[in-house]
Simulated scan of single mutants.
Amino acid sequence: MTARVACLSPYSQETVRELFKGRHQVEVVLVPDPPAQQAVLEATQEAHLVIADKRHKHRIDRRVLENMRNCLLIQQAAVGFDAIDHRAAAEYGIPVANAAGYNRDAVADWTVMAILNILRKGAYGDRLVRDGAWLREELLGHELGALTVGIVGLGNVGGTVARRLDGFGSSLVFTDPDPTRDHPGAKRVGLDELLRTADVVCLHVPLDVETRGLIGAEALAALKPGAILVNAARGPLVDEAALVEALGSGRLAGAALDVYEVEPLPAGSPLRDFDNVFLSPHIGGGTLEAEARVLEMVGANLLRMLDGEPPVNVVNAVLVAQK
């Protein structure tokens, strides 16, 4: 059988073919850059395997899913899968898998870098010096080891961040719905207590119906005065309008953001105007090592399906029997 592979991520024909290591005959169908929802619908209709869009732009919604005739697996080439209606996919018996953990080291590195950037006013100090200023007192910051860091979500990334922070001597608190997750020396608390007590709050949870708007006006008001918010997970976890208000009022000491409600971040976003906000273009998980790793994980799962083995990292509880 020639397997038809629809690729919604920005990979070339050659890259997709190389995932199969010459072990299976495949027909690869690419789609144009988004928006191109009709092309997504047509490309996936007869596909046996679908590589979802790592940019989260091409959506696999119910309309796309109900027109899929042969799909064995939807494989996301990323950790986040919010552009896929995974619940509807489960109704149709289609497993959805992600590349869980592929970029945990990259995102954890970015998170620690971002925290230090805000605490020590790194990017701001760089701009001042380049502009000819030499304002030492204005750049006095805080030591990370003197602070309490609250981790919202102790999964692949959150757990890796916790291990990084052990070396700084920070006090750690965390919240996570999974009762089996733990970290030596860290205290499990509820979200309300975490917001009240942490000097730095890091978000490391997936975007879903339960977490959209998790950090809104109420949560921001509950934060310890002078706290710092760090988001390298998904933009819509945070109500940006409420965040702008909290920053403008001086309640927050700063924020570090790699993800946004709308990407790219609009040119007129007020977030661009704050000197105490560190911004990056959704690159926290982007390293050469992580990019190589995600291709390896995606290819391995696609091969499992064609080899008659069940896929790993299935996020919608669809079981695939081994053949």
Rank of each mutant, 00 (worst) to 15 (best):
E289M: 05
E27T: 11
L172F: 13
V173W: 11
L191I: 09
C202F: 02
L172E: 12
E240T: 04
A3N: 04
G254M: 01
D275Q: 14
G125Y: 14
A219R: 03
V107N: 09
G155S: 06
R127L: 07
R164Q: 11
L243G: 08
G226I: 03
T211V: 01
A232C: 12
A246E: 02
A219L: 00
Q75T: 03
V161L: 10
D208N: 14
H86V: 00
A3M: 01
L41S: 13
G235Y: 09
E309L: 10
G268T: 08
G268L: 05
N156Y: 08
G216K: 03
V189Q: 06
K224L: 10
Q75C: 00
Q75H: 06
A78W: 01
I51Q: 00
K57C: 05
E137P: 01
V16H: 04
G125R: 14
E18N: 13
L271P: 11
D33V: 02
G153F: 02
A106M: 08
G299S: 04
F168L: 12
A123T: 14
T111I: 03
M305V: 15
R63I: 12
A146V: 11
A232T: 13
G169S: 14
D258R: 07
E245P: 03
A300S: 09
D131H: 14
A123G: 08
G250E: 07
N313R: 02
H183P: 10
L247G: 06
D105M: 03
D182I: 02
R304P: 00
P311G: 08
R234N: 06
H24E: 01
M113G: 15
L306N: 09
T175Y: 02
N98E: 00
D33Y: 08
A97W: 00
A321V: 11
H86A: 05
H86N: 00
G153K: 03
L65K: 07
R251E: 04
E137T: 15
L30A: 04
G153L: 00
E240D: 04
L147R: 13
E14V: 08
Q322I: 01
V28Y: 07
V107D: 05
K224E: 11
A300H: 05
A253F: 08
D33F: 05
E46L: 14
L214D: 00
M68P: 12
A133Q: 14
M1V: 15
G285R: 02
P310I: 01
A246Y: 04
T2G: 08
T2K: 15
R87Q: 10
T2E: 15
R17E: 15
P35M: 05
R127P: 03
L229I: 06
S269W: 06
E218T: 11
H56W: 12
G159Q: 05
D109V: 02
C7F: 05
R23K: 14
G308H: 13
R293Q: 15
V5D: 02
I94A: 05
R304L: 01
